[in-house]
Design a protein around this nucleic acid. Sequence first.
DNA 1: GCCAACGTTGGC
DNA 2: GCCAACGTTGGC
Length: 162
Amino acid sequence: MQAPKALRHWLFKSEPSVYGWQHFEAERRTFWTGVRNYQARNLLRDEVKIGDGVLFYHSNANPTAIVGLARVIAGGSPDPTQFDRKSPYYDEGSSATEPRWYGVEIEAIAPIAPPLTRDALKLAGALAGMMLLQRGSRLSVQPVTAAHWTWICRLAGVADRF
DNA sequence: GCCAACGTTGGC
DNA sequence: GCCAACGTTGGC
């Protein structure tokens, strides 16, 4: 019998002008749609599992920051927006039998207030290796190591629930 | 708004 | 399979 995989940790980027933490918190849960990058798709489809922790990050924002914690409540399934002709995420090259794009469902756990700004993250030497902080890093779904996760929870003053 | 870095596309 | 052109991301 196979041991269950340890819970893992992720960082999801979102532009607050498109879908911000306030919106997410009001809905409490959401299906994460619109990821159109194969590397991120592979993570959503194959690696992001129920119970995993998610850092919700505001990109293209002022300030850019980690603004909340979330939890994965359903693993990868096809992103319905790829089939919706009216959606900006519509992909005519995708089909129901061979969907190209995936998403997961997440639930809001706790806000991080005040937000943990990118500047604050950069000041924490222990976080220097975070993928988020690497030059040119733009993957919108990123793995976060357990050590980085723990540091971030401490910096944010939130309980490490994962 | 600028632009560096990255991903994708398509000609060859 | 190479690589130039183009489009996108996202920090600043």
